[in-house]
């Protein structure tokens, strides 16, 4: 039986497409932009084999499949060995090469990698660095990107730099999507529909009107509504609590100053001190 050429191409193309679907499984999980030279080449080779095999009737199917299997095996073995061995990994995927160290450009390394000054400046600008003098250390990765460590004084300020204590946060849970309540997400944070209805009632919102509703690890609910004209009240519970702790502490201090009764004075003074301690303990969680 002789199959007409177009039917064969149709069949071959379908098979090639099915193989293509399975292809992402054999490569490392990185974006294509971060593929090393070897991976990029292997990917192109496999793609070409699939493409040519799908329409070049002159090549027997067995040949394309043999080539394909061989290449897939090679990629698989190389990936496996590079998982196990550092030196092999560096050999195949290349290694980051420092191009700026201690704030000085290493011209020799640039030359060795055939990387021009313009490329370097361009990559630095892509990292939002317009002045080479701001850089402490930069690495030329095997993918051709440059990653930059800025000098400490040019790095963004963090709470740690300012010695400001901050409250730890966990990921928020999305508990309402498109007006539908996600019971599973609610359950993972230990809440239920009754709580949600209560919170929404407090904010004066109907559940049908909620497009997205999220709850953070402190049990605070924030919502986005379908109707964008309605203004959602900002959650005020925690700032209010902080303010009222501060006020109470101040009041107690005033009482301590005002009263002439020695025993009462001591009592107020102690209480004021206790509340001050409370304030110190919870302050960072209430911002």
């Amino acid at each position: 039986m002789i199959i007409p050429g177009w039917v064969e191409i149709l069949l071959r193309t379908t098979v090639a497409f099915l193989i293509l679907l399975a292809a992402p499984k054999i490569f490392r999980r990185t974006s294509i932009a971060h593929f090393s030279y070897f991976e990029a080449s292997a990917m192109i080779i496999i793609a070409v084999i699939l493409a040519v095999g799908s329409f070049h009737i002159g090549i027997p199917v067995g040949y394309s499949i043999t080539a394909l299997i061989t290449w897939v095996l090679i990629v698989g073995i190389v990936n496996y060995i590079s998982l196990k061995s550092v030196s092999f990994r560096n050999f195949i995927h290349g290694k980051g090469i420092p191009v700026i160290k201690d704030g000085k450009v290493l011209e020799d390394n640039l030359k060795k990698e055939r990387y021009t000054t313009d490329d370097l400046l361009k990559q630095l600008r892509a990292r939002n660095v317009f002045k080479v003098a701001d850089v402490e250390f930069a690495v030329l990765e095997s993918s051709g990107d440059i990653n930059v460590l800025l000098k400490k004084e040019n790095q963004p300020l963090t709470p740690k730099d300012m010695l400001i204590p901050v409250a730890p946060v966990k990921e928020p849970q999305t508990i309402v999507m498109d007006g539908k309540v996600m019971d599973e997400a609610l359950a993972t944070v230990g809440l239920n529909r009754g709580w949600l209805e209560g919170e929404l009632e407090k904010q004066g919102i109907a559940i049908e009107n909620v497009f997205i509703g999220q709850v953070d690890s402190y049990g605070e609910l924030t919502v986005d509504l379908f109707d964008d004209k309605i203004k959602v009240p900002e959650p005020k519970e925690k700032p209010l609590l902080l303010a009222s702790i501060k006020k109470t502490q101040a009041d107690l201090e005033i009482f301590a100053l005002q009263t002439e009764n020695e025993r009462a004075k001591d009592l107020f003074k102690n209480s004021s001190r206790e509340i001050e301690e409370v304030l110190k303990m919870v302050q960072k969680y209430l911002h």
Binding site: V169, K170, S217, G219
Partner: peptide, 14 residues
Amino acid sequence: IEANLNSLSLKTEN
């Protein structure tokens, strides 16, 4: 304040 702190201590996951 006491009531608010109590409710927060029950609600907070961390």
